[in-house]
Amino acid sequence: MQVTMTINGQEVSEEIEPRLLLVHFIRDQLGLTGTHWGCDTSNCGTCVVLIDGEPVKSCTQLAAMASGHDITTVEGLEVDGELDPVQEGFMQCHGLQCGFCTPGMMLTARALLNADPDPSEEVIREAISGQICRCTGYSTIVRSIQWAADHETDVSVGSAS
């Protein structure tokens, strides 16, 4: 079947098997390997992308379901050579070690900050609680997102508008 969607601002139209998961469509068919895959049960969140601005586990959706929607992956966070404050925050606050969970964490953070520019620690922890990081113990991820909130400009990558 044919699907058409916007990925990081660009329209793509591809022929796919109907059962193809969105995560595999993004990784294997489009070659955008920044989106990761880490479990069979929608628990890990390494596959999170934004669909119309909302964080979604791309392993729980068929690519077909994303047809007609607007997708942002980690590759879309940097715009015209400008890093998203979330990306900068993760570097500044050591919010990543192996970097495997990081794309998903950053996209959730981006969606959170779009909705709530000044989230409390509790709100941040709740927002990322559907995702697992095996390396950092989360404190530095929380700090990274706080750093981004403190350095937020008018960036609103991946927002629904």
Partner: peptide, 21 residues
């Protein structure tokens, strides 16, 4: 010191085994 690994990883430009094609 900030990490040298981070600029590629925060851009989704890491190269993990499953990324190899």
């Amino acid at each position: 010191l900030l990490r040298k690994e981070d600029p590629r990883l925060i851009r989704g430009m890491g190269n993990f085994v499953d990324d190899i094609s």
